[in-house]
């Protein structure tokens, strides 16, 4: 049984006077893939970024309600945000490797945590690159610049970097939208492999991608959670007319 690992209650978010999220309550289950879909500006990325407090970095943001991860409200004043982001990793739309070697990109988080032992770092780098299905492609050039990798490889490197610090949850904001179909396929395969160990929440504009990789799907519109159910239900027989209209491309 997959227990709830993230739980939001009446979560609202305002950018200044404008409300971007409207009282969203939902749960994300452990070691499953949950997809967020909806038209641009519907709030899905904003909602995703609430799970590791990335919105804290934006001025003028106000949040009401709570986000509990494993029972703890991550917006409580005593929460260490750095610790939180170690538990909740993130991969972005555009791959953003550091201008360093492949090895250093993956080892970076561990070094920040104070790990200096060479063998330990080597092990983490190998394990993470294997976990991100990149090891075989880069094992002979670990000390070359990460910027020399292809777009798809760079994205998998970012996933390796995220899992190197052993988070519980991986947030992915359109991780394959800038990739060609072959690289996208590799990232999707990787996501399906990773859910054995991680809880994954992914924002995607590609509904077929959501059908291929997710177990649950949430549809957002104008800052509201319209429908949340199993992916099969959402894409074969949605309960709400708005969901039906969106997934069949008849929206608006």
């Amino acid at each position: 049984m997959h227990s709830d690992v993230i739980q939001t209650r009446d979560l609202s978010l305002f950018y200044g006077a404008s409300q971007a999220l409207k009282s969203i309550s939902m749960s994300v289950r452990e070691k499953l893939v949950t997809a967020f879909i909806g038209p641009s500006g519907c709030g899905k990325s904003t909602f995703l970024r609430c799970f590791n407090r990335m919105n804290d970095l934006i001025d003028n943001v106000r949040i009401n309600g709570s986000v509990e991860i494993s029972g703890q409200n991550i917006y409580d004043s005593d929460v260490d945000v750095i610790e939180l982001r170690k538990r909740v990793g993130m991969v972005f739309q555009k791959s953003n490797p550091f201008p360093k070697s492949i090895y250093e990109n993956v080892a970076y988080g561990c070094r920040l945590q104070g790990i200096r032992n060479r063998q330990e770092l080597d092990d983490v780098v190998e394990e993470s690159l294997k976990g991100a299905a990149l090891w075989n492609e880069v094992k002979d050039r670990l000390h070359s610049s990460a910027l020399g990798l292809s777009g798809g490889q760079q994205q998998r490197l970012c996933i390796a970097r995220a899992i190197a610090i052993k988070p519980e949850i991986l947030l992915m904001d359109e991780p394959a939208s800038a990739l060609d179909p072959i690289a996208t396929g590799k990232v999707e395969d990787l996501i399906l492999d990773l859910k054995k160990d991680y809880t994954i929440v992914i924002v995607t504009h590609n509904m077929q991608q959501a059908t291929r990789i997710s177990d649950y799907t949430a549809f957002f519109y104008l800052g509201e959670l319209i429908e949340f159910n199993t992916t099969k239900h959402i894409f074969t027989n949605p309960s709400k007319q708005q969901t039906e209209d969106y997934v069949t491309g008849r929206f608006g």
Partner: peptide
């Protein structure tokens, strides 16, 4: 063309 929901059904 990968239809979904009612179109798929």
């Amino acid at each position: 063309k990968a239809p979904l929901a009612r179109d798929l059904r």
